[in-house]
Design a protein around this nucleic acid. Structure first.
Lengths: 249, 249
DNA sequence: TCTCGTATAGTTGTCGGACAACGGACATCT
DNA sequence: AGATGTCCGTTGTCCGACAACTATACGAGA
């Protein structure tokens, strides 16, 4: 197989090479192509089969190692981790909708509130916008297979939307809307995790007293390091699984 | 500066090179050597100043990018993220004690229960040990500046301790004890996050009704991919900050 | 003067090859 | 049988090169 610096390889050609390779390997891991603890192909093998350089292979393997999907030992090789199920961990930045879909459920959404209003002082600081500028204020509940899993309160500055935007245009996933309308691309989010219990969170009175929530208080940033979305999502305890792979390095 | 493959560089020489470099840069970032958004030295500069190869530099930068401390843009350079404080995120695997100390508080600990007993069936599966083998069962509360921040229920298989070990030998941090006694080195932990409210968690009756906890349900693995510690830590809501840097890749 | 395309320099992304360091397996010696 | 030495496969690190991208400077043309 010939492979030049810009030549074809065994992967698509959109995003960065190591990312695509990591995604491909992640898929093969999820398909249980290697049993837990079993050795993966060596770096040299991967270089050969994918037609990419060893630097690319190593970066992809490092990514998987950081996510806890494999372990690598010098002089030995890389091995599939024996974590039961491949999990969509908390540290992967994805829309809630996408995460639900990946878990094999049917995502849904119902908007309760959706208006443009003037930004508060805190919001001006957060988004780096001037006084008097507008933000979109959203309240919605998010469902999986028609079961409510979360209530979400979101705020986005006006500039992320097209100039002719009207609140009613926004119907489904916010991330999907932004991607389709030249909006900012989410790159990072700093999330604060809390446990709360407050019935006034649910506006439809569909919850019983004593209901617990896991609150994800998040500020999202785009590729230019600009904050463009602030969300407070209250996940009803027990209806959504949150896992974090913690690593020493 | 001369730099050979095994030669001296500007860092110590114990753990892996990219890790040490990443730690060093993390320290300089924490010291606000670069303002938020300011450009870091180029990869070529870092190669020169640290006396390591560009591959090493790139891997260190990737680590920092994954932790959300910097952003890298092709053709431009790397830039310090404008996250207010350098935060000890959830995805860094550290003992609770160490985390408290890093936050500038004085960690403390009080054991309530500490006995060797026979492993249950679930624990046999979890640790891969045979029937009849022993585990150490711990219950303790963890404090910061003499204020209780968490109640923790931990289980470890017998083999992680020295042969002449007796429960009373364990007084402080479990991680510290293992490090000092040839125990396994923690490398990863798979954590499950939940919100709970159950007064029976606190055995000392020091809490008021309605108290909320953030539960971290964790299974720890060592460098050989062996599960060696299962912990259920109940953090009293509001007394401990949990943040997660979520990244797209 | 202004606009726009082009050239240029600077930086990260990827490539290829090389050697060092480590771990295991096996043969050898005591 | 146990300890020791050697070989081989694999990952860790290094080096140099070129491709791809970004921002800026510059010049031609209006």
């Amino acid at each position: 197989m010939v492979s030049t610096k810009t030549g074809e390889n065994r992967l698509g050609s959109r995003t960065a090479l190591p990312v695509r390779l990591a995604d491909d390997l992640r898929g093969r891991l999820a398909a249980h192509e290697w049993s837990p603890g079993e050795q993966l192909p060596t770096e040299a093998d991967l270089v050969h089969t994918y037609g990419v350089s060893r630097a690319t292979v190593r970066q992809a393997l490092k990514t998987l190692e950081g996510r806890g999907l494999i372990t690598t030992r010098r002089g030995r090789g890389s091995f599939a981790a024996d974590v039961g199920t491949i999990h969509a961990g908390m540290q992967e930045l994805k829309s809630i909708t996408a995460t639900i879909a990946e878990m094999g459920h049917r995502p849904g959404m119902r908007y309760h509130h959706r208006v443009l209003r003037v930004a508060t002082g805190v919001e001006q600081d957060m988004f780096g916008i001037g006084p008097g500028e507008q933000v979109l204020d959203i309240q919605r509940k998010i469902m999986a297979d028609d079961i409510v899993v979360a209530y979400s309160y979101d705020v986005l500055p006006r500039w992320v939307f097209p100039t002719d935007f009207r609140p009613k245009d926004l119907t489904g996933s916010v991330f999907a809307f932004l991607a389709d309308n030249d909006g900012p691309t989410p790159v990072r989010a700093l999330a604060n995790v809390k446990a709360v219990s407050d019935l006034s969170i649910a506006w439809d009175g569909a919850l019983e007293p004593g209901e617990l929530f896991l609150l994800l208080d998040q500020l999202h940033y785009d590729e230019h390091n600009r904050a463009f979305m602030y969300t407070r999502s209250y996940f009803i305890e027990g209806r959504f699984a949150f896992t974090v792979m913690r690593t020493a390095r």
